[in-house]
Simulated scan of single mutants.
Amino acid sequence: MPDRNPSALDFLLTRRSCPAQTLTTPVPDHDQLETILTAAARSPDHGKLEPWRFIVLGRDALQVVADALPAAGRRLGIPQDKIDKPVKTYGGAHLAVVVVFSPKTSEKVPKIEQTYATGGVCLALVNAALASGFGANWLSGWFSHDRDFIHEVFGLAAHETVAGIVHIGTASRTPPDRPRPDLTAITDWSRA
């Protein structure tokens, strides 16, 4: 049995993401980010397949994303306001990590389990960044699901998709809390 860790439990009970637009510098340096990514990669992984990989986007790469969004949005018929919002977010961002779902062929581990594992990595990445004293937010967006965009801008292979884009930085203000799930409404205790 692991030792009781009340600090970790308190962190999990009080954690909250920071809106990406409120994140500023400083951002984690290389060593700090390597530690955060290492923690994220310790997520449960049935079959030890590692069906994910990371792409670190610094300031220049984030500007490339922002610059590519208008043309992609027009090509897809996205309303202008839904193009402008991510242009502003990515154009003003300083660090983000693309979590790439990169499934492996396996007779033992179905693709859906690999998908769930990659989602766990996204959450672990957010929590590791928060536990390191940084703000973080897990985003996606219309462009992250567009095959042409993710191939051209992120260099994803044909079998890969974006599981999430985690923005990391210093929170410029305390993130707002939000209503949390009603545990009684989502839990069946009848078989306990």
Rank of each mutant, 00 (worst) to 15 (best):
P2L: 12
P2Q: 09
N5T: 07
S7V: 04
S7H: 08
A8D: 05
A8I: 12
A8S: 10
L9K: 09
F11V: 08
L13A: 15
T14Y: 07
S17K: 13
P19E: 07
Q21D: 13
Q21E: 14
P26M: 08
V27E: 02
Q32W: 02
L33V: 08
I36A: 06
A41K: 03
D45S: 14
H46R: 12
G47T: 12
K48G: 15
K48N: 15
L49D: 10
L49G: 12
E50Q: 15
V56W: 13
V56M: 14
L57T: 07
G58R: 15
Q63A: 12
V64F: 01
V64P: 00
A68N: 04
A71Y: 01
G73Q: 06
G73S: 03
G77D: 07
P79D: 01
P79R: 06
K82Y: 14
D84I: 11
Y90E: 01
G92N: 11
G92Q: 10
H94R: 10
V97I: 11
V100H: 03
S102P: 00
T105W: 00
T105Y: 00
S106E: 03
E107A: 13
K108E: 13
K108S: 11
K108T: 13
E113S: 12
T118Q: 03
G119A: 14
L125G: 05
A131F: 01
W138T: 08
F143K: 02
D148R: 15
F154T: 02
F154S: 03
F154L: 11
A158H: 13
T161R: 09
I165Y: 01
V166S: 11
H167D: 10
H167S: 13
I168D: 01
G169T: 09
T170Y: 04
R178K: 09
R180V: 05
R180I: 02
P181N: 05
L183I: 11
L183P: 01
T184E: 15
A185H: 08
T187F: 07
S190Y: 00
S190A: 05
S190E: 07
R191T: 03
